[in-house]
């Protein structure tokens, strides 16, 4: 039987959750015994090669591209896991949600004290994905199956979740892996 495939993506996140995936250290050798990585920044596959068992999503959706990637993951993965605060709630990027997009862009590209922008244009190249009116947590865009909290979730929590899913056992997350105070 072929190994189950795992895909990962970083949307509006900081790659911290991906760092945390790598932080499972040498267990990554055990992991690749268990799974095959598909579309992921880790192996730099740009698209899905086949259907995946698990998709790990870091970050929420701040632009149209994030939405397309997330919908693509939903279409190609049996199970989607929201990995970390930004995927679950929007996180730091969602701090802009209380400010109208127009004001955010003006501050960033026109009026901010350190802005140097002689053209007085907000970047609008069609190649640049359009920003959404606010940052959406993943579950508002597609159905998510599981949520792993933390900023980032500890490597041990990611390890516990993945191995539990792959070996079809109930997940055991001790309190130490869930508390953040």
């Amino acid at each position: 039987m072929s190994k189950p495939r795992v895909a990962t993506a970083s949307l509006a996140g900081c790659f911290g959750c991906h760092m945390s995936i790598l932080d499972i250290d040498d267990r990554i050798l055990q992991l690749i015994e268990l799974v095959e990585f598909d579309k992921s920044p880790i192996d730099d596959y740009k698209g899905f090669t086949q259907r995946c068992a698990i998709g790990l999503i870091e970050g929420g959706c701040c632009n149209a591209e994030n939405v397309h990637v997330l919908q693509d993951f939903r279409k190609n993965c049996d199970i989607l896991i929201a990995l970390g605060e930004c995927a679950i709630c929007g996180g730091i990027p969602a701090m802009r949600n209380t400010i109208p997009l127009r004001e955010c862009l003006a501050e960033a590209y026109l009026d901010g004290p350190t802005v140097h922008n002689p053209s007085r244009r907000i970047p609008d190249d069609p190649e640049i994905p359009r920003l959404l009116n606010r940052v959406y947590p993943c579950h508002e865009v597609v159905k998510m199956d599981y949520y792993l909290q933390g900023c980032p979730p500890p490597a041990d929590a990611i390890w516990a979740a993945l191995t539990a899913l792959l070996t079809n056992r109930p997940i055991q997350l001790p309190y130490e892996l869930l508390k953040y105070d």
Partner: peptide, 24 residues
């Protein structure tokens, strides 16, 4: 395909589109 019916991409990008159009 597990998409949330409540999420409307066109509506979510409308503001950005109008900013770009005004600028153009």
């Amino acid at each position: 395909e597990g998409r949330r019916a409540a999420f409307d991409l066109a509506a979510a990008t409308a503001e950005a589109e109008s900013i770009v159009l005004e600028q153009a």
